[in-house]
Amino acid sequence: MKNLNICIDIDGTITDAYYWLNITNKHFNKNITEQQVTKYYIHEVMGIDAKEYEKFYEQNKIEIHSEQKLREDAQMVIKRLSLIHNIYFVTAREESLTMFTHSYLKKNDIPYDDLFVLGSHYKVDKARELKCNVFIEDNYDNAIQLSTAGYKVLLIDTNYNQKPLNENIVRVYNWKEIYSIINELLLQSEAM
């Protein structure tokens, strides 16, 4: 039997947080740097209308997501965690990207028990359904929703999630730190 149910976001969490920057800068003729990405929503960062960004994204989503590089140590840590824990990817990506996302994870040799492509940033119901013990996320609003609902959240540090945290959220800086914290959580759960 596996120990913890670990829910993991994909974009910006297992992948580089600024994966979309080059292609988006090029398309909108901007020169935004990673340091200037202080908001989560890309149209706000770019200073363009949401509809304009949505049209660009719809036409370029496969290329945008295909070029995503994994964060350092993400694959290695997830492989180790998958040996004794359930790994569930829970992403806000639109449902049309389900097969593409399965392929991306397989291509990058990332093990998982299941993938949920929600088409929405609201993840609390899925966390509840999966009996989530810890949720790894990069979106500040998602982290607040999940933590307020009682879930432990590991918020991977980015320029766009620098607001104050509550007691259920721990800011983490890399995947090795995530591995260490999950091991501590496992020890705590075994001691109960």
Results as ranks from 00 to 15, higher is better:
residue 118 L to T: 06
residue 16 D to K: 13
residue 32 I to A: 02
residue 21 L to N: 07
residue 70 L to G: 10
residue 101 T to Q: 03
residue 26 K to L: 11
residue 179 Y to E: 15
residue 175 W to N: 04
residue 88 Y to F: 15
residue 82 S to K: 06
residue 22 N to W: 03
residue 191 A to I: 05
residue 162 Q to W: 08
residue 164 P to W: 05
residue 39 K to A: 07
residue 168 N to M: 07
residue 86 N to Y: 15
residue 185 L to T: 02
residue 6 I to M: 07
residue 168 N to L: 07
residue 75 Q to G: 11
residue 133 N to W: 03
residue 106 K to Y: 14
residue 97 L to S: 14
residue 16 D to M: 09
residue 119 G to A: 13
residue 1 M to C: 10
residue 177 E to H: 02
residue 93 R to D: 02
residue 72 E to G: 02
residue 159 N to K: 11
residue 11 D to S: 14
residue 37 V to D: 06
residue 122 Y to I: 14
residue 35 Q to D: 15
residue 172 V to H: 00
residue 171 R to H: 05
residue 173 Y to F: 14
residue 86 N to Q: 11
residue 55 K to C: 01
residue 140 Y to T: 04
residue 12 G to Y: 01
residue 30 K to C: 10
residue 33 T to C: 05
residue 159 N to Q: 11
residue 51 K to F: 12
residue 129 E to F: 10
residue 18 Y to C: 07
residue 157 D to W: 06
residue 40 Y to W: 12
residue 119 G to H: 07
residue 10 I to T: 09
residue 147 S to F: 04
residue 137 E to Q: 04
residue 171 R to C: 03
residue 92 A to E: 07
residue 99 M to A: 15
residue 186 L to W: 00
residue 188 Q to L: 12
residue 157 D to A: 12
residue 110 I to V: 12
residue 157 D to H: 11
residue 31 N to G: 03
residue 138 D to R: 02
residue 141 D to C: 03
residue 1 M to Y: 13
residue 91 T to S: 15
residue 107 K to E: 15
residue 107 K to T: 14
residue 63 E to Q: 13
residue 80 R to A: 13
residue 48 I to V: 14
residue 191 A to W: 00
residue 102 H to V: 01
residue 173 Y to L: 00
residue 53 Y to H: 09
residue 70 L to S: 12
residue 60 N to K: 05
residue 184 E to F: 04
residue 79 K to F: 04
residue 150 G to S: 07
residue 45 V to S: 04
residue 136 I to H: 03
residue 57 Y to E: 14
residue 45 V to W: 03
residue 57 Y to S: 01
residue 74 A to G: 05
residue 56 F to S: 08
residue 168 N to T: 04
residue 147 S to T: 11
residue 128 R to S: 09
residue 40 Y to R: 03
residue 34 E to Y: 12
residue 108 N to Y: 12
residue 166 N to D: 10
